[in-house]
Design a protein around this nucleic acid. Structure first.
Lengths: 329, 329
DNA sequence: CTGTTAGCGCTTTCAC
DNA sequence: GTGAAAGCGCTAACAG
């Protein structure tokens, strides 16, 4: 593999000259540049990015760490992150934290391979994040709070969103309401459950714990949880699914058993993923400002990189989206 | 920022000893390892990944380059890639080629930052790929053929898939059939159009070029192309959308104008993205083996990395998925 | 403009 | 086991 040294030799110039030429430094004459470029082409030279990063100590790259890159939920978030990153002439790489604290993602957290990171991955431990964030390595976390001045928190108001959705259910006459939950280690899930519980409490509606089933935030989990509920023979009036994916899984389970939504059971979801608008019936849900969250996260990273003071935490609000999966009073 | 040197000093050992201890080399006594680890913890040491990669000349990482990370189409592909990569203990990073040959992606292609790459991005030039692939940097390209022995091609049979879908339209009595195309530089689009044309030819049906409109593979593009067609006042019997996203955009355009699918116009798509099953009416389309393509691509990369001989090209077949967007005869 | 040179932080011989 | 020392390939300060 050809190095810059080989290029310099072939072009008959000094090492530094070759480096300057290759990097477009003005000190070099056009003819020299041409010579160097030609030599590089002939040798099929490819620069070793690590070596130059090592020298520069800056990578111009930020990492986006997601618990599952292939989830539909992340699309819009990525878009927000991507656009702002590009507009700052930075590079973006995404990686999955599949495998938790033993995943690829940790390589980016533990070893200084990027200038900053945005994390939305419940399977990365808070401890790891706290250990990693530092002045020259700012982190924005999207799903929890972290005790480290260089780990900023951009959160959406899960609690209020869940409260609104639950209230909507109550106002439409539903009294026994179940909750299909996400993973127990998910802070988002916890907050949503709190909002849900708050609403129930405020309206003095008792919550029956047998109507709380875990669905793990996946479509399949929602499907299975719903099946289980159906098997219990005694369905609640309404179901709050902690995310849309699970609600869509639930929709399928109901449809297979001939149970009609919303005539027999009303359901609401959370997130407002793209599909939700298209399922039958269209899903009433709580919209998260995913694009905005992504954009704000990167923006914050850049501010911190520039040494500016930023708030420790940002709050984004949700929006209730009424469609047709809740029976009107 | 603490370096390994600082750690060694604090632990009172030599630089190399610290390195060995940190990397779990057996030469070091347990007590020494403990000492070093303690010092590292105290200094909040984080290793510089670049420096070690530079030394090792291997990154254990492969890159997945996509024209748009946020597209729904890529989800399953990513899943396939991800799982196989992880099973080989390799890391995976994804990056977008938004910006074409000037994007982040090129950094990974031009500078040796990863051990191999998988590309599905029509906006990356064939030339760049040809220049980049080499023995120690294998590339798998998913959407075109490339003249370089180290750039392998995993392709799905777009042509045959499109042929089948078109045939289905013809067999159900449709005679004037339009084609909503993807970007002109997309090889996939080209192949699909060929399959489409082949079918028309075989059944001796003329193709009217005014019924070929570009929709750029995006939902919005499909929407606009369809609007344009509607404005022309003279709709064809059926429309072949070169991908599902555009077809879904088209569905919306038709619905806004009160044109019924499939009663007034029949449509077929291509890809079989998740949404296609849920739209109204469910979209008849051609399913691509996305997961398999991703898995095969990584698998091939690993074979090449291991120095094994591999075929220059692999073919995966498509599957026709009949749903309800085509009027039966 | 060009060439010499000193590292960036780490791994890894090789001698002790 | 341990420590000194030689670079990996590149950039950039410095002196011509």
């Amino acid at each position: 593999m050809a190095t810059i040294k080989d290029v310099a030799k072939r072009a008959g110039v000094a090492l530094s000259t070759a480096s300057y030429a290759l990097n477009g430094n003005q000190k070099v004459s056009a003819s020299t540049i041409e010579k160097v470029l030609k030599a590089a082409r002939e040798l099929n030279y490819q620069k070793n990015g690590f070596a130059s990063d090592l020298k520069r100590t800056k990578t111009n790259t930020i990492a986006l760490i997601l618990s599952d890159m292939s989830g539909p939920y992340f699309s819009e978030l990525i878009k927000g992150v991507q656009e702002v990153t590009a507009s700052h002439q930075y590079d973006l790489i995404a990686c999955s934290s599949l495998g938790g604290d033993r995943s690829t993602a940790t390589k980016f957290l533990r070893e200084k391979r990027v200038d900053g990171a945005i994390i939305l991955a419940n399977n990365i431990s808070t401890q790891l994040i706290e250990e990693s964030a530092r002045e020259d390595f700012p982190i924005v976390v999207l799903d929890r709070e972290v005790q480290n001045p260089f780990a900023i928190h951009v959160k959406v108001d899960n609690r209020h969103g869940a409260y609104q959705a639950t209230e909507h259910l109550i106002e439409n006459g539903h009294r026994t309401i179940g909750y299909i939950s996400g993973p127990h280690d998910s802070h988002d899930n916890e907050e949503r459950f709190k909002g849900f519980s708050d609403a129930l409490k405020d309206y003095e509606i008792p919550f029956q714990s047998r109507f709380k089933i875990s669905g793990n935030f996946t479509r399949d989990g929602g499907y299975r949880a719903t099946k289980m509920l159906i098997a219990q023979q005694q369905l609640p009036d309404a179901l709050f699914y902690a995310n849309d994916e699970m609600a869509i899984g639930g929709l399928q389970a109901f449809s297979e058993k001939g149970i009609s939504i919303p005539d027999d059971v009303s359901i609401v979801g959370f997130d407002d993923i793209q599909l939700s608008e298209y399922v039958n019936p269209p899903l009433t849900t709580v919209k998260q400002p995913k694009y905005e969250a992504g954009a704000l996260a990167v923006h914050t990273i850049f501010q911190m990189l520039a040494g500016e003071q930023v708030d420790q935490s940002f709050d984004l609000s949700t929006e209730f989206v009424k469609r047709s999966s809740v029976r009107s009073k």
